[in-house]
Amino acid sequence: MNLKELISELKNKYRVLDEKFNDPNHTFVSIVPDQLHAALGELKSYGWKHLSTISCVDWIDDNEFELVYHLWNWDSRSQISLKTRISRSNPHFPTIMHIFPTAKYYERDIHEFFGVEFDGNSEMEPLFLEFWDDIPPMRKDFDPLKYSREKFGERDYKVPFADFIVEEGDQK
């Protein structure tokens, strides 16, 4: 199935908020959260069988998280990225493990770094960080520099050539 045909079919069946072609073989489709699972299942049956990854974007001004599911089709060599937005204040989303079992680790990763809870995923303990003690570190309201200064300290040193560094703008 052609990517263009697929998009029009998706538009007929689901509430597609937005769609944008990145290049002829790659498109982004925004969809409402409660229809995402049905859309993923249908795409899988059409040949988009490979879940490349799940990514998460923190839209702090809109108070929303955006989950992006990247699907790849090995036959037509095309990619669809399904986007959906969920609330940032109480981030909960049903897991997609029953459609793509590999999602287990991607969801665990997103839970660790953004704090999104995936209901139905059995393993939600931290994957990479050990004994993390702050808000999830990839959120926009987390200040890594401040955290690093407090926790790991800062070296006091003098840069001997600091006077000779010319800032952009004061060149004369």
Partner: peptide
């Protein structure tokens, strides 16, 4: 001093 990771949440600086 951390190099390019001077502001990382997970990389030591000294």
């Amino acid at each position: 001093n951390g190099g390019i990771y001077y502001d990382s949440y997970n990389v030591i600086t000294r």
